[in-house]
Write a protein that binds this DNA or RNA. Structure first.
Lengths: 366, 366
DNA sequence: CTGTTAGCGCGTTCAA
DNA sequence: TTGAACGCGCTAACAG
């Protein structure tokens, strides 16, 4: 404790400006300063102007710790992601950060490995200690462990592709169907009939959804998909490489492959090259996510776009709704007055996907 | 304010456990609880055990906001990066996070565009408001603006490749020479004599250092580097693509190109493919950073490795030293007692580089 | 509309 | 060694 006791010393010229420093310079009470800053209650123009002037003059900014302590609101949102080496996640975090900051929230990022129990315990602990008002669990499906720990503390949450009874848990529902259906249709129109799917881990809800969307789309297009054309990978470069290797070993090979994410697809590009297969002349490849790199792979990758911006916005909206509701429990937003039995505030948030055609798809070899 | 006034209500069975909740359960004073948690002063084994037991039983964890408020230490470190689409930075952030968390610090990430003045003002403001104890400015060189604002607030800083008088500013000195020299030597040994360098922006200190290291290495190897073989790019995929385009227009083309970073090199791979040049048969390419993707480019990229882990550790060490020094000004670490005129605590931190040979380099065409 | 006052949860003096 | 009391900077009651 290095502050000399200075009870009642309202000028404090040396150190950082206080709310009291501002108050005395503006010749008002600290309450008035607080009110003008927060706009919590009307302040006369005259005083308000004096206060803002003092704030500017002193380069004053409020102490968020004190603020959080007294208000019970930290204005921090947590975000947990996995596998930071997939560029999709940094881009997602950046979008989330941008939106949150624009709305006056801070973010606390944790890139824990979701299957490492001690890591996720640490992650949860960090969120709890810093008193985040909600957590976006953007691990795309393997979130059971983190879920238990967080819901046990009544933490508002938003997840992907996984609906939960808990009223504090919202869900982002990504419409993979549209994008994946467009991809399959695109291949069929090019003349492909034999299409493979390199799936993600069966432990990820969204990977399962992606695979099912693919199968549904194939069926809709009247395609028969041999079961060994569906191979489970792990959403990494290496996994895509290895997964495509399995496809190569088949006697009856597909002419096109749709991948559960772009990393897998880039791995496939790599494997195809090693096998002296040209993309797209010998084999067509489609990814999913549309990360920045897909414009610069060889060849540029046709992919199913999943907007980071949309996803981030959905996550933020969900969390803010929860945080705001928790802050003023009386408001009861989202319910018509009079229909008090209605379903409460919005808890599912849709995000769409779409096909981006580049150069990794063409007609199959004759 | 949703807490019902409960002055002196030390049991508080419903809500989150308090330090007072712990104290009463352990039948000690709150001071004793504080002391056992922080180990600030000796507590008898008997009481200490009772306290820890109560903490566990209640699943208590301290309120960091209250802690920060009273202690003046937030235990938060800021990190400002640019261009999050370059995978180097996410990997760097993840390493920094891991180290910081392991040492009980939280991190506050900001991915502002350094040339956007309002964005960086926002970023600085965020750091200030949350009372971070130091900021790692890992934008690799274009940090003047952020620097002014932060040093004006006496914020401890660590930068790359840019030494500053201010005793609160530390510098990470990356030994590019060794890695770049190894790269040039590698090319020379393969038989190359005509080597190009695709530089980074001249506004980045580290980009300048990289270029100068290249020129020095070339000279050491007895190479003549035509001035139009040095082309300034911008460390992006697109920039590398365009930069290589300029090289192609030359009558006297180089047989190898060293790039200021991996993103540039991947752009070159792309451009070479478009120009029907085979890598490495027709042209050799070397990157810098060794991001995860370089293992999966076509062909896998020979590159100069700059360890994210080392860099993150250097940044953390620098900041912690500053933060600790600021917390207890009496300690005077890093000076021999008796030589009170010595230079004070460590302020420069070295990081090394090394060559990683993959498949994008070979002998030049005959 | 404005000021006074209590106390958010905790670290740290000072006495005992 | 331990405990009582104070105050970190701020917001939210409550008076006026």
């Amino acid at each position: 404790m290095n502050h000399v006791t200075r009870k009642g010393n309202r000028s404090n010229p040396a150190g950082k400006p206080d709310i009291r420093t501002v108050a005395s310079l503006a010749r008002v009470s600290i309450a008035t300063v607080s009110r003008t800053i927060n706009g919590s209650s009307a302040v006369s123009d005259k005083l308000s102007k004096r206060v803002w002037q003092a704030i500017e003059q002193l380069d004053y900014y409020p102490n968020t710790h004190a603020r959080s302590l007294v208000s019970g609101r930290s204005r921090i949102l947590g975000i947990i992601v996995e596998n930071i080496t997939n560029p999709f996640f940094p881009e997602l975090i950046a979008s989330f950060e941008e939106i949150a900051v624009a709305h006056g929230y801070e973010i606390l990022v944790s890139s824990a490995n979701i299957d490492n129990a001690s890591q996720i315990t640490t992650s949860v602990r960090r969120m709890l200690e810093r008193k985040v008002e909600g957590v976006a669990v953007l691990t795309f499906g393997s979130e059971e462990t983190v879920l238990d720990q967080l819901t046990a503390h009544r933490m508002p949450l938003v997840l992907c592709e996984f609906e939960v009874e808990d009223p504090a848990v919202s869900t982002i529902l990504i419409d993979y169907s549209t994008g994946i259906h467009a991809a399959v249709e695109h291949l069929v129109e090019l003349g492909h009939r034999r299409i493979s799917f390199l799936a993600g881990p069966h432990t990820l809800h969204s990977a399962i959804t992606r695979r099912e969307s693919f199968l549904a789309a194939a069926q809709k297009c009247g395609l028969k998909i041999a079961s060994n054309w569906i191979v489970e990978c792990d959403h990494t470069l290496k996994g895509g490489d290895a997964g495509f290797g399995k496809l190569l070993a088949l006697k009856s090979r597909p002419t096109a492959v749709v991948c559960s994410n772009d990393m897998t697809a880039i791995g496939v590009l790599h494997a195809a090259h090693k096998a002296n297969l040209r993309v797209p002349q010998d084999i067509s490849v489609i990814g999913l996510d549309d990360i920045a790199f897909t414009d610069y792979t060889l060849p540029p990758l046709t992919t199913i776009r999943l907007s980071r911006m949309d996803l981030a916005k959905a996550a933020f909206d969900a969390l803010r709704l929860q945080a705001e509701a928790a802050a003023n429990p009386g408001a009861n937003p989202g319910t018509n007055p009079g229909t008090h039995a209605s379903s409460g505030p919005q808890r599912t948030f849709p995000v769409s996907t779409s096909l981006v055609i580049r150069e990794s798809t063409s007609a199959p070899p004759a």
